[in-house]
Design a protein around this nucleic acid. Structure first.
Lengths: 342, 342
DNA sequence: TTAAATTCAACAATCGATTGCATTTTGTTG
DNA sequence: CAACAAAATGCAATCGATTGTTGAATTTAA
């Protein structure tokens, strides 16, 4: 299918024997064009089925009214909620969203970012991939004078606007809660420690143990258990220990927690009596497993809105100096059956 | 933060004492520019941190290499998977995606579509909202010579490219399966009949009953039970009937099926012995409820890829005549514990 | 009635990249 | 070394909308 020629302001101008500039002004509701002509132009525009060519307009105006978003995976609950939140806020301001997914690959992330730079987006919002350690590509965004906002998984070294969860605190809360419930040997399933969020969660875990006078045990901390399968394997390993844990904090995700639960069920270990389980992210299934799983809500939709609003707020700020601003959202522990023993 | 001036081909041309056209050609790897100069230009471009202004380029070229996607909700499993699929396929072709959500509202859907038309996207991919009955806004897309692809929830009257699920067949399969399992009084939870997908699912249900010589009973078909809550209410109503159903097909979604399961659990009705339950969409939680829920997989990611590839294929087609093409994907029944009685 | 002030529309440059055509440079051949 | 072909570069128009400036027409004030 070949697209037909679209009507432009020149077409309208020609038809009405006017200058394109007047048409443009009328369309932008400028006060320096006569009301009668304005009405006529608007009417003709409608007749000719005119729509503004945003490409041309943006080129002239020097901005694109577009925000680029890079996430590891679009179809992951947390991220799709954040995106929904961003969309909700930006839409009202007439902004568009270009969405890319890095698929957790550094190479693709770099490509995505570069494409967005080419597109001359006004702002790039990113949550980095697991593989990302270098950050030249992000520096590059800054070098192009494009606003950069990091969220959730952020590169600490880079001074940009950031919206994060207070992972350490929520992790601390979760572990403290488990201790209060009488669990004594709490294991930790860790995510890749490259990512700051997983480091923070570990810190929170350790702090909680320390504050309750419990010595951390190396054998109870398993690295890189960040998928359901890896967690299931880790759980088997943990439960076959001479002194197995009486609780497992799957700090990486609810999917991990699910893996733990499944193994426990198979091994006929009673949850929460013999084993407490806590996940992370408040996926909707955590409510309906049996037993339901204690987890942590990250307020993802709200997080998206916060990101967008941070941008708009920063926009209005005419100062040339960018003050790196970090907004930390405190996640909420949701206690459910999997850690509740009376 | 104010964005600094970005380097353009003019900057490069000036620095090298060349004409911008040569720079452009070099950057596009044209064969009509000397290899030495080309190398020099590329080197300088890198030095000056140049990136092409896609706005200008697209304006000149007359297309945007952008596809607009409008879905009811981004953060719904099915849709976010479709989007992921589209992204996966379009990315490889250097296309960008602009994502909008209609929030199931007709008004917002119209707005979204108009914004995308303004943006001069090359193609609009849409799954309409529940509220959508009129389709002037979609006709408008066509009138602007923009490719339009509908998926899943499509407006039948409009002759466009379409990628759909064979809802009738999958529904037929599901109900047939339940009949085979010995269920005799199968209730149907319907979605809003405005939407063709829900009408098709009802047709499939009726056809299955008919082919097995079962007369449909009006009391067992509940309209508009398309959320978890509405389905729970409908289930209570159904189960308090003098002759209650022995199975419920929640044709709208797995969330509906979940509502059914919860009510059954509360009422201490045994699933699948006393009541069979079948959902729709293969949400990840259906696997882990107890009992696990029989459902229908829609191959959402694959559907997204199909949509994108359909566009690219159509692109190459130079014919001016658009043959309305419909690709129907056959969903797959996934039988689980909730309908399996030996 | 005339000078001053408004109002409204036209003109032309601009945003940055692309591209058909013209011109210059380089290379080849007799 | 002239003559011509080929290669490389320059020129200028174009995509469509925006906007500062200029000038004509109209209105208001004096």
């Amino acid at each position: 299918m070949r697209s037909k020629k679209r009507t432009t302001i020149y077409d309208i101008a020609e038809k009405l024997n006017l200058n394109p500039s007047s048409v443009s002004r009328a369309l932008n509701n400028s006060s320096s064009v006569n009301d009668a002509t304005k009405k006529l132009i608007l009417k003709t525009a409608k007749e000719l089925n005119y729509t503004r060519n945003t490409l041309a307009s943006n080129l002239r105006k020097g901005h694109s009214k577009t925000i680029g978003v890079v996430v590891p995976r679009i179809n992951q609950n947390f991220f799709s909620n954040v995106i929904a939140g961003i969309e909700d806020a930006t839409y009202k301001q007439g902004y568009n969203l270009i969405i890319c997914q890095s698929n957790e690959q550094y190479e693709k992330e770099v490509q995505c970012v570069n494409t967005l730079i080419n597109q001359h987006v006004d702002c790039i919002v990113i949550s980095v991939s697991v593989e990302t350690t270098a950050h030249d590509h992000l520096q590059n965004v800054l070098d192009h004078g494009i606003q950069l906002i990091q969220f959730d998984r952020v590169v600490d070294e880079l001074e940009t606007l950031k919206v994060t969860n207070d992972n350490e605190q929520s992790s601390f809360d979760a572990v403290s809660h488990m201790i209060t419930q009488g669990y004594k040997r709490i294991a930790l399933l860790e995510g890749p420690q490259k990512l700051n969020i997983f480091r923070q969660r570990k810190t929170g875990y350790l702090r909680a143990l320390k504050e309750h006078g419990i010595a951390p045990i190396a054998d109870l901390m398993i690295e890189n258990a960040w998928t359901k399968e890896l967690s299931a394997a880790a759980t088997r390993q943990l439960l076959s220990l001479p002194e197995p844990p009486d609780a497992i904090f799957a700090s990486t995700s609810d999917f991990s927690a699910l893996g733990v639960l499944e193994v426990a069920t198979i091994m006929q270990i009673k949850v929460p009596q013999q084993l407490g389980i806590c996940g992370y992210a408040n996926e909707n299934f955590t409510e309906i497993t049996s037993p339901s799983i204690t987890t942590i809500d990250q307020f993802s939709f709200y997080m998206g809105k916060t990101v967008a609003n941070l941008y708009f707020q920063e926009m209005e700020n005419t100062d040339t100096v960018v003050v790196p601003k970090v907004i930390s959202i405190k996640p909420k522990l949701i206690t459910r059956a999997s850690t509740t023993r009376e």
